[in-house]
Design a protein around this nucleic acid. Structure first.
Length: 450
RNA sequence: GUAGUCAUAGCUCAGUUGGUUAGAGCAUCGGUUUGUGGUACCGAGGGUCGUGGGUUCGAGCCCCAUUGAUUACCCCA
């Protein structure tokens, strides 16, 4: 027998971990719903025609492809045995790579049924055939919310509020919401006369957190930019308070172009929609986001008390559904990285204490007759919202209490001959060690008042 | 795709310049206690030292290959 294992880059989530993950997921879901977002789930598999070409050449490499069913080589002749030719012949499905493309596909397929603006949230795993490393997996969860079909900046404001509510509920206070505008980047790169390298430059700028200003400068020079050009671009890379004065400063430093006015206009309007309440919010010129479909405001949330990358990101995109033939739908979306939020909360130790408690009461039966005696009592407790289980064997009491300890159960109800003869129960508090005899019918009341 | 590190009991790991029968803690099971746990004591089970080859009188340890894990780069959440 070989030892069992799971594929690299995948994980099991045991009961204790699941309790904490559910706590995060439920919190996010609750907040999404409170803003009027509705759930959507899509299949784990999409047609490869839906997926390929949407994530760039690198992304296509990272797609998990699913072999066709049955004898998939039956009609393939030997001259087709070259991966480029063979792959499309034997695989027509792939695992989804993110939740955004499936959303676009869904909306286009159901455009006559969905009501715009379409507000949906989706919390499902996605797969990437990446090489796993710290904080990077081949199967991981995304928790997206998007609004499709309106250019209104009210959506941007809502997402800022969603961030604040989610992290307030999770009692996570050390974080920053960083905001930037994609067109601001475009204007600055234009001003530096380096537009041909726009995409590469955004990727470099996005690394500013990691490699520092000097690192960015070096990479820009390696790209072939001169001293003037890098200076112009580097002038953008500071983080500052999100307020009207700073926006005015930025505006005065930029040429009076359509893009510049649009970017500053959007950010100003967002500031007003937030009623100038900018707790946790910063304007960060170095925020770029790697994905190139963003066209407007972009967001990122970074924890400040823990050394960790972003725990959420998102932004506005103008033409997501265009790739599937539905033009002119502006949208905006964000995504929480639940795995990283988990790590941050674990490190700060801010999960609620009773998070791993699944059972309140354990019935310990000393003989077979005790089962009949306690089963109705257990049912009654459950109906009253008390999580109850009956130890299924008449094992030695030590073993039953060990089980209760292992599951962090706080109450044991012990039933043997003595208790049954007197219509009583021995109820033991496993935290304090105290034990008392109570009347059989008083159990629910006894536990309810706690 | 590139580079480094690692692989010994269910888990976490010791194991000396190569030298007798490969150890510990935790976990599991049994006992001290026919019905009272977290602590203590006693005992038991559990290993092809990732796999294959080589060097040697002798390999967990050295060499080569291979597989897997992990970390960094590229890219990304």
């Amino acid at each position: 027998m070989s030892k069992p294992s799971i594929p690299r880059g995948t994980r099991d989530f045991g009961p204790k971990i699941m309790a904490k993950r559910k706590y995060i997921l439920n919190t996010i879901e609750q907040v999404y719903q409170s803003f009027g977002f509705m759930p959507l789930e899509t299949p784990s598999m999409e047609n490869l025609s839906t997926l390929t070409g949407k994530y760039g050449a690198e992304g296509d490499q990272l797609l998990f492809k699913v072999l066709n069913s049955g004898d998939y080589l039956k009609d393939i002749s030997a001259d087709k045995f070259e991966s480029k030719i063979l792959t499309p012949l034997i695989s027509e499905k792939g695992l989804r790579y993110d939740l955004t493309v499936p959303l676009a596909r869904y909306v286009v397929m159901n455009q006559n049924e969905v009501t715009f603006p379409f507000k949906r949230y989706q919390m499902q795993p996605v797969w990437r055939a990446d090489r796993p490393q710290k904080g990077r997996y081949r199967e991981f969860w995304q928790c997206d919310a998007d609004v499709l079909g309106t250019p209104s900046l009210l959506c941007e404001a809502d997402f800022v509020k969603i961030y604040r509510q989610v992290f307030a509920k999770l009692k996570l206070t050390g974080y920053e919401i960083r905001i930037n505008h994609r067109k601001l980047l475009e204007v600055v790169v234009e001003k530096a006369d380096a537009s041909t390298h726009f995409k590469t430059i955004t990727i470099i700028i996005d690394k500013a957190d990691k490699i520092g200003i000097e690192g960015v400068k070096n990479e820009l020079i390696n790209l072939g930019l001169n001293e003037n050009q890098t200076t112009v671009i580097l002038s953008l890379l500071n983080k500052q308070a999100f307020n009207a004065a700073n926006l005015a400063n930025i505006k005065s430093a930029l040429p009076n172009t359509e893009n510049a006015n649009k970017a500053i206009g959007d950010l100003t309007q967002l500031l007003e929609l937030l009623n100038h309440q900018t707790d946790f919010v910063y304007l960060d010129g170095s925020l770029a986001r790697g994905l190139d479909y963003y066209t407007g405001c972009i967001f990122e949330v970074v924890p400040t008390d823990v050394q960790m990358g972003s725990i959420s990101g998102g932004g506005r995109y103008d033409d997501l559904t265009g790739i599937f033939g539905l033009k002119g739908i502006s949208g905006i979306g964000i995504s929480f990285g639940i795995d990283r939020i988990y790590d941050v909360m674990e490190e700060l130790n801010i999960f609620p204490a009773d998070g791993t408690k699944f059972t309140d009461v354990l019935f310990c039966c000393m003989d077979e007759k005790a089962f009949a005696y306690c089963l109705p009592l257990a049912d009654d407790l459950r109906l009253n919202g008390i999580k109850t289980e009956v130890y299924p064997d008449t094992s030695k009491l030590k073993k039953q209490l060990d089980y209760a300890n292992a599951k962090n159960i706080s109450w044991a109800v012990i039933i043997g001959e003595n208790e049954m003869n007197n219509n009583q129960l021995a109820i033991k508090n496993l935290v304090s060690g105290e034990q008392e005899l109570i009347d059989k019918n008083a159990l629910t009341l006894f536990l309810e008042k706690l």
